[in-house]
Amino acid sequence: MPNLVKLLRSQRVIWTLLVLPGLWPLWPIFISQNPSVTADPFKYVLHHLGFVACIVLAVVLSFSPLRVLWPQWGVAQALNRHRRLVGVAACVYAALHLCTHLLYEGGFEIAAIPTTLLTALDKPFQLTGLIAFAILLVLAVTSPHSAITWLGGKLWKNIHRLAYVAAGLAAYHQAAARKLFPLQVVWIFGPLVILEIARLWKQRRPKPAAAAITPSGAARSG
């Protein structure tokens, strides 16, 4: 376990873990040349990038409940060092997903992009994805420390709570992407929902006397 914690504390390890899933489509498209994928490679890339964006978003949101639930756990502490990096990665994957959609829906013609965007505004399935991305973009832009001082801690924190709205929208968007409800939505966002409920339950219950003496412990959560 200490080795795992050491690995997870390394920014390089996290970087690698974040980049690798983005490279995955190269395998079925170029190396194994899976005909089910090469039939419509950009659809595959599009779905894959959206899928990774959802996973990364769910993962980063689970960091803080993990720390609240198991404050002494080394893994939770290590992961919480990377909240900003992982959060920005979720935004980057969402951006790549949106770019793929904008290019691919218009047959890779730049002139078709405005029409594609207008269509997106018109359809709840696409609009929810677009709003989720817009939220992630705002959060990524305001992720540097300087933004916290500029906005003030309280406002900054409230803005960053929008991440939960983004997750809800992303879950809907992902579910609506298929003709039938895809179970992957449950296994991506389900654990997060459970963790959040557990976190709320822990924070709401009457605090033991020891915790009440150290208010700094409570202030750190969230």
């Binding site: 090469t38 039939a39 419509d40 950009f42 659809k43 691919y104 829906e105 218009g106 047959g107 890779f108 269509t119 359809k123 709840p124 399935f125 696409q126 609506a176």
Partner: peptide, 21 residues
């Protein structure tokens, strides 16, 4: 007539590369 979730105005051609018709 669009599908409620996507447009039906154009289509991707399977095995057709980047293009859309």
């Amino acid at each position: 007539v669009d599908h409620p979730r996507w447009t039906q105005a154009s289509e991707r051609v399977i095995g057709g590369g980047l293009g859309r018709q």
